[in-house]
Design a protein around this nucleic acid. Structure first.
Length: 282
DNA sequence: GGCCAGGATTTAA
DNA sequence: TTAAATCATGGC
C-alpha cells in the first residue's frame, strides 16, 4: 500500500469530488472511495491533511490524477486580483477544489450520459454500466467494478443499455461503442489544439458544445474551456449580467476573459452556485 | 402533476 | 441563422 499526504488547504477531497467533475466515488469509512479506469483509492481528510491510500502500482497514477504537481495557490491569488465579487466568494468557498486529470474516454461516456440529467441519476447509470460490463475488483475488503474496456464491451447490446436508466442516451452510448470498435481512439486527439480537439469531439453523436467542453476540461486537461450548463447560465445572467442567449457564446465570453484560468474559475462558480441554492432552500 | 436535471438533435420558421 | 419541439426518467 502507498499513502500520499497533502495539505488540505488547496486539496479538499469532499469539494473536489462533489463539484460535478467525477461520478465514480462513494462514501467509505471517514472519507471516500474514488474509482478511475480499473483503479481505486481511499481518500480522507485528517488534521488538515488529505490522505490518499492506494496500491503501490497506482501511486503515480493518483498523484497525477489529483494534479498534485500544480500550484493551486497561484490560481487562487489570480482570482483575488479579478476583484469580481462572486468569483472571489466562490473561490473562498471552494478553495480546496482541484481539477482531476481523468481518463478521456471515461469522461466522454460520462458526459454524454450527463445531458439533460441530474447528478445522482448520472452516478447511478454509470455505476450500473460498470457493474454490467466492467470487471469485479476488491480493495480494502470492498467490492467495486472497473470502467469497461473496449474488450469488455464486445457483446454489448443497445437493449442492455436501455436497462440501466440511460433513457434516450442509450442510443448515443451504443453508437460511441461502435465507433470505438471501428477504431476511434480519442486519446490520439491529445496532440490537437483545444479548438481542433473540440471540433473532433463535436462530430460524435450526442456530443454538443457543453459535453465537449467537459471532456476537454476533465479528460484532456484543457483549462482554456468553460462548460456552460443550466447552473453556469444562471451565474452568467444573474451575477455577470450577461446578455447573450446562446450558451456557446456565453462560454466564449468567459474563456476570452479568463484564458487558461477559465476552467478553474468555472469549477469555483459551479460549486458555489449549487451549494448556495442548496442553502437557500433551508 | 408540472418542472427540472452539468443538453443535443431534429424540425420549423 | 435562430427558435421551438422532442427526447427518457426519477426526484421534488
Amino acid at each position: 500500500m502507498q499513502k500520499i499526504v497533502f495539505s488540505s488547504e488547496f486539496f479538499n477531497i469532499k469539494d473536489t469530488l462533489e463539484c460535478g467533475q467525477i461520478f465514480r466515488f462513494t462514501s467509505f469509512n471517514a472519507g471516500f472511495l474514488v474509482m478511475s479506469e480499473e483503479k481505486v483509492a481511499y481518500c480522507y481528510e485528517e488534521n488538515s491533511f488529505t490522505n490518499i491510500i492506494c496500491e503501490d502500482s497506482d501511486r503515480d497514477y493518483f498523484y497525477n490524477f489529483f494534479d498534485l504537481d500544480k500550484d493551486y495557490s497561484s490560481i487562487y491569488s489570480r482570482v483575488q486580483q479579478t476583484n469580481i465579487d462572486i468569483l472571489v466568494n466562490a473561490s473562498k468557498m471552494g478553495k480546496g477544489i482541484r481539477i482531476l486529470k481523468q481518463n478521456a474516454l471515461e469522461m466522454l461516456f460520462s458526459f454524454i450520459v450527463s445531458q439533460n440529467n441530474n447528478i445522482p441519476r448520472i452516478k447511478n447509470s454509470i455505476e450500473k454500466f460498470c457493474a454490467l460490463y466492467g470487471e469485479k475488483k476488491c480493495f480494502l475488503d470492498r467490492e467495486y467494478f472497473s470502467f469497461p474496456t473496449k474488450e469488455n464491451l464486445k457483446n454489448c447490446t443497445e437493449q442492455d443499455l436501455k436497462g440501466i436508466g440511460l433513457g434516450y442516451r442509450a442510443e448515443y452510448i451504443y453508437n460511441l461503442i461502435k465507433l470505438i470498435e471501428n477504431g476511434l481512439k480519442i486519446e490520439d486527439f491529445n496532440s490537437l489544439s483545444t479548438i481542433k480537439l473540440k471540433e473532433e469531439l463535436l462530430k460524435i453523436k450526442g456530443v454538443g458544445p457543453k459535453v465537449a467542453d467537459c471532456v476537454l476540461l476533465f479528460g484532456f486537461n484543457r483549462s482554456d474551456t468553460f462548460p456552460v450548463d443550466t447552473w453556469i447560465e444562471k451565474v452568467y445572467k444573474e451575477d455577470f449580467l450577461g446578455k447573450e442567449k446562446d450558451r456557446e457564446k456565453q462560454s466564449k465570453w468567459f474563456v476570452n476573459q479568463f484564458k487558461f484560468d477559465a476552467g478553474y474559475f468555472q469549477q469555483y462558480l459551479f460549486h458555489y452556485k449549487r451549494k448556495k441554492e442548496e442553502k437557500d432552500k433551508n
